[in-house]
Write a protein that binds this DNA or RNA. Sequence first.
DNA 1: CGCAGCGTGATCATATACGATCCGAGCGCC
DNA 2: GGCGCTCGGATCGTATATGATCACGCTGCG
Lengths: 233, 233
Amino acid sequence: MAREPMTTSTEAQTAVATSKSQRAYAWLHERIVTREYTPGYRLVLAAIAAELDMSVVPVREAIRRLEAQGLVTFERNVGAHVAMIDDSQYRHSMGTLALLEGAATALAAPHLTEADLRRAREVNRRLVAGLDDFDPHAFTALNQEFHAVLFAPCPNPRLLELVTTEWARLGRLRDSTFTFVPGRAQESVREHEEIVRLIEAGAPPADVERAARAHRSATLAAYLNHEHPGAHA
Amino acid sequence: MAREPMTTSTEAQTAVATSKSQRAYAWLHERIVTREYTPGYRLVLAAIAAELDMSVVPVREAIRRLEAQGLVTFERNVGAHVAMIDDSQYRHSMGTLALLEGAATALAAPHLTEADLRRAREVNRRLVAGLDDFDPHAFTALNQEFHAVLFAPCPNPRLLELVTTEWARLGRLRDSTFTFVPGRAQESVREHEEIVRLIEAGAPPADVERAARAHRSATLAAYLNHEHPGAHA
DNA sequence: CGCAGCGTGATCATATACGATCCGAGCGCC
DNA sequence: GGCGCTCGGATCGTATATGATCACGCTGCG
């Protein structure tokens, strides 16, 4: 079969097994989700190829995948841009996230350990601590962490995959980071507390799901009522 | 393998406005969802390119997109295969579909017209009629149509997108078409009837959602018990 | 209205994996 | 003990993916 039994073959493989199109994909994905490339940013194939020291071919493949994933929009003969969602798409995506995350949290609840719950409470405490002297960016990050802790042990990997995708999608909103609605913060952390309490008390999955879903939905509603006006002042 | 002479390239196709990679994508997508290319089928780039009269480059881009969508698996230096899901993935995907479709149906309910409901009933009648003299393939198709009618007017396009994706995914099960469990059919059509009744009666969205979700979950449970009794927890 | 930039796709060169063939050793049979 | 059969393993060949370069055409801008 192979000319070398398997030792050298395996060794050599593991060292350089990553293809260029893989590298391009990972690189671009990273830039997009971290918002280093903000929504609407024009992606020039040749420039990216040059930066990564490869030709345009692997870059195009990477962008096709990102397109299928919804992170990039592609226009024939024009080029690629980092995807940008409008308020309507944001609303729909957030509604979907509420659904997915609510279910994931309910499914994960029985598998949460004491340590997990302590961690969730700790994160929520940090959220409370940040309520005065407010930093939207930090709040958003902690908020995500809180939810991630709660649904992480969900036994349905497909569901987790969709939740992740939806998060990435929501991050394509033009301005601001993720969601943050000033008046919502206090209410939000209270709901967090309530969700943890329900889980700890061993509430029925349906109750946990309803609470988690309602929490996201309320955030969405607040966002729509409050933050709708045009961009900056 | 001899290369194709490829004498003329600047004729004939100029009328079509769609790019070649688009055409390749659509063509492959079609073949896969119709199960003309069954799960596990090896996709050879050069062969597809020859069939579509193009080079491998657009085909590769198309396959990358299909990969991101989960319809195709890609292995470095080995090639692409039509994605194949195992029972575990099927279970998770079906659970997710129950969730998504349940919500979509509940959201769509208020927008269903008389005609929609008539159509749903008609489709279900055809399902009932097919109970004796059984054709799993036809039953599956009608079953999908029934559900599609009910959630079509769902105002959340993102949700519909995910439902569609999940359907395509479920179709990647190696054997048989979609789901069909012999003993389930009668029960299934009764539940269909009940769902339509709930919607017609203007039941609360939560009730519609619960019924639609439970219907799919029951189908899944029956599938698991029948096809793999006592599998998993 | 022409020029420049850039996306699109074909061709070519290279790397890698899989399969076929061939060689030599172990082993049973005469 | 000699002969042939079979099987493990290496070498080579071919099929195929991967990526670079080049030619062409569209689009936008002056």
